[in-house]
Design a protein around this nucleic acid. Structure first.
Length: 816
RNA sequence: GCCGGGGUGGCGGAACUGGCAGACGCAGCGGACUUAAAAUCCGCCGGAGUAAUCCUUGUGGGUUCGAGUCCCACCCCCGGCACCA
């Protein structure tokens, strides 16, 4: 009797041995085809929860599978280590962010090691360490040198609780802070931006990359490209230089229906254009919109309101005077911050016009329209009316004709607008990479020279809940000499958005210890781009968009030769518990450590793969994982307990059947792994185990075939359960290590079914099944079927109208 | 509201290209072993019916010899976006 399966013991043993032997150390042999399999690195929150495992374990299985196929696999791991929680911990518990972060890293690294993955820890990357953020700063300078980083005053998203600026992408729902869910409001601040908008058009193309449609759609929506016209409305106001107000519209065909214009309350012309008698009212309205949080202001429930400012513009197309209003539903940041209102053909304008009794003029005729007043805005297609020389055109034709006409008259013309804003990277915080810039009274804004990098974070900063960066009050940090004139200068005290750190970490993994450059060029050329990037879909419009932008920028700067960092993207689903998303506040967070120490990492890995399709996500369930543990225990005994072939074992027929099962399983497991269908891959291995358990009982195959079965079963399971397979591989006397073995191949001929179950239907209903040779011909099948007793009783006395025969599958008799 | 993905036993989920619905596992039930329990092993396990058989993939229609799979309409769930002019 062999000893029983003891995962604690063997997992520890093999993890130790693999590390000692550097089994998973990545070679830099560029003659071998490479496979770069990247899993999104975790934020250093403190504990690895089961959701992390769900991201890491199946991707490790896939990487191991590739490794067994002979690829040189880079499957690295590291830590996204800058960010707010570290600083909040500093304020709350008086622990330095560096210390807090590195403690978390140590704990999480320990947990990550327990997964038993092929991470090569000599390549670990931690973004908060100076040898990493030095290069983050270096990239900032590169972007700056190439005109992609600039400073500007801008109304920014401000979270009063976190006391920091947020990127648009970090504002969730109806204007809430992504991190603390506090209502976000607006502030005008001098900030650093990256010109991501320069790449807007390229970012909505996804050439030669294999990404989920869902993510591509989300990015396209986020970039929000829309085609339309800019139209100039004539302005003639005493004392005002500007002679026009331009609007952006996607519906130039409705320009004759304009009955008012609406400006954003913050629009620079508003105060100057407001008539004296309206001044008080308008100022009150502007003050109110500033006070309102974005949630209130953008709430859909909120009725649209506004104020007439007492002045007019002229619609050049028909010469009409158009009153100017302001309303907070018009956003300064989109288009020109001014809209032409066409109440007849826009729902918002319609509601607004109804509320303030403004005229509603139909210019696109609804079907069967007879000059009636509209009940609601008509936004569909139709013929143009009340539109001068354009009357009678379809609105599609009109769109083009009006655009041409505007162009010809120089009153505007075709234009494109985007929702995407430039990427705001300044954070008023300590725990980030300092922006390497200084301000000099005589030289202005001066970049820190490359050779002076990194600009180190001072260790002695004081953390107080004031909301301002501790750097601002650290004199040693702030006071600097100007690199140009050697005079006194002040250092920039803002740090960079952490998405900057994660926009290039995948480059660093290719040569993590390079101290002369952000990455070694030849290594980067060999490994990049990432072949398979896996992680959660929550990064669709932040990390993934920024990283794409970043690589495109580096390409244009000449640092890399490709434009897309991640050739294939795959998003796993989420693991829930008790029908709910896991969260600390619900107290339903599953900690993997307990399961690992009780049932073993192999069971946890397999359970996570088996519970549901990976992209789908699944529910954590204690009895579910014990089922996996039972299976591994059965496997243990199956492999180790002696096999006794019975008399006459392994006759030709039985041998063929056995071989077919083995080859079909290899095929199924291989194909499922290629498609990352881990759940059905595991099911196929369970089926094989069950089949072999029966075989063992009846002893019907020869000893060599049994050995071959064990070998194949272990190899197929090796990526999924690296520890138990290594142990069993050793105990059955095979050479170390199973993880250096080639993946088994299958033979198409041997996998083919020799006998099939022919399904017999009468009028589409299942009536009989017959075991027949797979090679059965059309005629043989028909003759056979018509002679069957069961079949006869269904067709007796009826006329046989048609026989449908699907080779290898079924025969359907159609009778009347 | 718009975009994307779904709806299959008590549960998680299988099902090639339109061809046996329910693989695999969990839970449950019955049995063996045990003084007993746990563990393990064997058997059953969508519903109705003694049975033949009939019904069954969110709902209603359609195409087809044949529909979980294709088409139309609707209902519900999840994710994303949401005054973007």
């Amino acid at each position: 009797m062999p000893d029983s399966y003891n995962p604690q013991e063997i997992e520890k043993k093999w993890q130790h041995k693999w590390a000692e032997d550097k089994l998973y150390e990545v070679s830099e042999d560029s003659t071998i085809p490479k496979w770069y399999a990247l899993t999104m690195f975790p934020y250093t929150s403190g504990d690895l929860h089961i959701g992390h495992w769900y991201a890491m374990a199946p991707s490790d299985v896939h990487a191991r599978f590739k490794r067994m196929h002979g690829y040189n696999v880079l499957h690295p791991m590291g830590f996204d280590a800058f960010g707010l929680p570290a600083e909040n911990a500093a304020i709350k518990h008086g622990i330095h962010p560096y210390k807090w972060t590195m403690q978390n890293v140590d704990n999480m690294r320990r947990q990550l090691k327990s997964i038993g993955a092929i991470y090569d820890w000599s390549r670990e990357v931690i973004t908060c360490q100076p040898d990493y953020y030095k290069w983050t700063q270096w990239f900032f300078l590169k972007l700056y040198d190439n005109g992609l980083a600039y400073r500007g005053k801008a109304p920014v998203n401000w979270c009063p609780k976190c006391q920091t600026v947020l990127a648009n992408e970090q504002v969730i729902g109806n204007g809430l802070c992504e991190r603390c869910e506090e209502a976000v409001n607006r502030r005008d601040l001098e900030q650093w931006f990256f010109r991501i908008t320069r790449y807007a058009d390229e970012l909505i193309e996804f050439n030669d990359i294999e990404w989920p449609e869902r993510i591509k759609t989300m990015q396209r929506n986020w970039v929000g490209k829309s085609f339309g016209c800019e139209i100039s409305f004539a302005l003639d106001h005493p004392g005002i230089e500007e002679k026009e107000i331009r609007v952006f519209t996607t519906r130039p065909d409705t320009t004759f229906g304009v009955t008012f214009m609406v400006l954003a309350p913050e629009h620079p012309l508003v105060t100057r254009l407001t008539s004296t008698e309206k001044k008080a009212e308008v100022e009150a309205y502007i003050a109110k919109s500033r006070r309102l949080t974005d949630i209130e202001r953008l709430s859909i429930e909120k009725e649209k309101d506004g104020i007439f400012i007492g002045t007019y513009v002229t619609n050049r197309l028909n010469g009409e005077k158009v009153p100017i209003w302001i309303a907070d539903y018009v956003l300064l940041g989109y288009g020109t911050g001014a809209v032409m209102a066409v109440p007849a053909h826009d729902e918002r304008d319609f509601a607004f016009a109804r509320k303030y009794n403004l005229p509603i003029r139909v210019v696109i005729s609804p079907p069967d329209w007879n000059d009636k007043e509209l009940e609601e805005a008509y936004i569909e297609a139709g013929k143009m009316v009340n539109s001068g020389q354009f009357d009678g055109l379809s609105n599609e034709e009109g769109r083009e004709a009006v655009a041409d006409y505007l162009k010809e008259k120089e009153w505007g013309g075709r234009s494109v607008s985007y929702k995407l804003r430039d990427w705001l990277i300044s954070r008023q915080r300590y725990w980030g990479a300092p922006i390497p810039m200084v301000y000099c009274d005589s030289c202005g804004v001066v970049p820190v020279p490359e050779e002076d990098l990194p600009v180190l974070l001072p260790e002695d900063a004081e953390f107080k809940p004031t909301g301002e960066s501790p750097l601002k009050y650290n004199e040693k940090f702030v006071n600097a000499t100007c690199p140009k004139c050697n005079g006194e200068a002040k250092r920039e005290t803002d740090t960079m958005d952490t998405f900057m750190c994660s926009s290039w970490y995948f480059l660093r993994y290719t040569s993590p210890n390079s101290d002369r450059a952000a990455f070694d060029e030849s290594r980067m050329r060999y490994w990049m781009p990432v072949d398979l990037y896996t992680g959660g879909a929550e990064h669709a419009v932040m990390h993934l968009l920024y990283a794409r932008f970043f690589i495109k920028a580096l390409r244009d700067i000449g640092l890399v030769e490709f434009g897309e960092p991640f050739t294939r993207l795959f998003n796993q689903g989420i693991i829930i518990a008790n029908k709910q998303k896991m969260s600390k506040s619900r107290g339903n967070v599953v900690n993997p450590d307990a399961y690992v120490s009780e049932l073993g990492a192999d069971s946890v890995r397999i359970y996570l793969m088996f519970v549901a399709p990976w992209e789908h996500g699944g529910e954590w369930n204690d009895s579910g994982i014990s089922g996996i543990s039972r299976w591994l225990n059965r496997l243990w005994k199956l492999v180790l307990e002696e096999y006794q072939p019975k008399e006459g074992a392994g006759n030709e027929n039985r041998q063929k059947v056995w071989q077919r099962i083995i080859h079909q399983t290899i095929k199924k497991v291989t194909e499922d792994l290629e498609k990352m269908r881990f759940n059905t891959m595991i099911a196929a291995l369970m089926e094989l185990t069950n089949n072999l358990a029966k075989t063992k009982e009846d002893g019907s195959i020869g000893r060599n075939d049994w050995d071959e079965s064990m070998k194949t079963l272990l190899l197929l399971l090796a990526p999924s359960a690296p520890h138990i397979t290594e142990e069993l591989w050793q105990r059955t006397g095979r050479a170390y290590s199973i993880h250096n073995q080639p993946w088994p191949s299958w033979d198409r001929e041997l996998a083919k079914d020799e006998e099939i179950t022919l399904i017999v239907q009468v009028n589409g209903k299942l009536r009989d099944r017959i075991e027949v040779p797979a090679s059965i011909t059309d005629d043989e099948a028909k003759t056979l079927v018509l002679d069957r007793h069961r079949v006869k009783s269904y067709i007796e006395g009826k006329q046989l109208a048609q026989i449908i025969y699907v080779p290898g599958r079924l025969i359907n008799l159609v009778v009347k």
